[in-house]
Design a protein around this nucleic acid. Structure first.
Length: 113
DNA sequence: AAACTGACTAATA
DNA sequence: CTATTAGCCAGTT
């Protein structure tokens, strides 16, 4: 089986990281990219999530952009779904429709400082 | 194969 | 605060 040695695509690595986001927390695309050892490729993270099937177990809803906003097209079904799923996890949006990252951002081990 | 597109982000102005 | 520019790179056209 050597041939396609690259079966482990970038996507798989991204999904692996997203799966680690705990319930009630959110992470940004750039953060995921960094944790997946793909610094600067936040865009690919969004691309990977976009390719996920509807029945995936990957908690894609916990990934938002650096402003704490949903990156999906406003008013789209996916946008609404993401808000609902996050709301069920206890994540609240502020008046501007953003998630206060200072409060909900996921901090994987080793919080620096 | 070249041009487009897009679930991003940081830096400028 | 908004707008523009540039870097990124895989999937589509």
């Amino acid at each position: 089986m050597s041939g396609a040695g690259e079966s482990t695509s970038t996507y798989q690595r991204i999904y692996q990281v997203v799966r680690r986001i705990p319930r009630g927390r959110v992470a940004t695309y750039g953060q995921i990219a960094r944790l997946a050892e793909l610094p600067g490729r936040a865009r690919q993270v969004g691309y990977a999530l976009h390719a996920l099937p509807a029945n995936t177990r990957v908690p894609w809803q916990r990934v938002v952009n650096g402003l704490g906003k949903i990156s999906l097209r406003s008013g789209s079904d996916d946008d609404r779904l993401q808000r609902i799923l996050l709301g069920e996890e206890g994540v609240r949006f502020d008046r501007a429709g953003r998630i206060p990252l200072d409060r909900y951002i996921w901090r994987p081990r080793v919080s620096g400082k």
